[in-house]
Design a protein around this nucleic acid. Structure first.
Lengths: 148, 148
DNA sequence: TTGGGCACTTACCAAAAGGTGCATACTTGT
DNA sequence: ACAAGTATGCACCTTTTGGTAAGTGCCCAA
């Protein structure tokens, strides 16, 4: 199950490229990246995180409308997980028409900040990404990739 | 480095329009983060990216052994997608015992760099993450989350 | 001759992720 | 009275994802 990312003594050709900078620490995680990915896995989580990060305390309905393609079930589910993971805080003003809002914990905030470069990358390279996806849409359904 | 994650402290009566600071640009993407996520979605892609980034040109077998839990099918599949997305380059030395290696394109490299903060976050907060996951494992199988 | 490694490929399947739609309990607006 | 909005819960179903196992053609070592 757990495997570190280092080479198992295979000096076949060159220097064994041991992983550096991505230190394995706790059992169950191969590296920090791995740990992070487990927490933000889910179609909407990073988006939710990012949105809440920008808006401060955000009401459920706002989120719902902001992330337009998300369903209630999904939004709730991901919010619950984010809450369970200690990334967001749910505040329920026990009011008569339900009123709830979500905000980031410090942990969540730090993660949101780590997300910034990814966002920047996407923004910067959106043209390439977009184009690649457009092409892929052609052969993805039913076809095969062009025999390179 | 530090982002514009500032809280605009919008009065609750106002209507915060849509996502700001994460500029929507091309159709099909809500923001840069969205674009990025489409490209690195997949259980192994970030790990592959990161590993190749560190090892330079990497042979298939090395990757296979490095990311120990990955199956041939998955590894190939994700590599193909990464290649199709212009993030990795596949080099096939048409040799008699097959020899192929994978390296990052400039685009892939830049993405790998954007991944670094995530890796760092995971490393830094691995204790919290680990603990949360341990607790979750209790009720995840068959139980329900503690009725908070 | 058998076995293994290389870099895949394919077919088949199970599990997880995600979507749809209905229900709740209460209030406000028409 | 009735629809709509509020923040969810739940049952059911489809899609996507990922895993297993087997096979391919070639060569080398035992």
């Amino acid at each position: 199950m757990s495997s570190d990312l280092s080479e198992p003594s295979v000096p076949s050709t060159q220097t064994p490229p041991a992983v550096q900078g991505c230190t394995p620490t706790l059992p169950g995680f191969t590296c920090g990246l791995d740990a992070t990915l487990r927490v933000i896995a889910g179609k909407w989580k990073p988006l939710i995180l990012y949105f809440v990060a920008q808006g401060g305390p955000t009401r459920y309905g706002e989120l719902r409308r902001a992330v337009r393609d998300v369903s209630d079930k999904m939004l709730i589910q991901q919010l619950k997980e984010l809450e369970a993971d200690g990334l967001v805080k749910r505040t329920d003003y026990k009011e008569v028409p339900p009123r709830v809002d979500y905000s980031l914990t410090p942990l969540g905030h730090s993660l949101a900040e780590a997300l910034v470069p990814l966002c920047a990358w996407g923004t910067e390279h959106m043209a390439e990404v977009s184009q690649v996806f457009a092409e892929r849409a052609t052969w993805t359904r039913g076809g095969r990739p062009p025999a390179a």
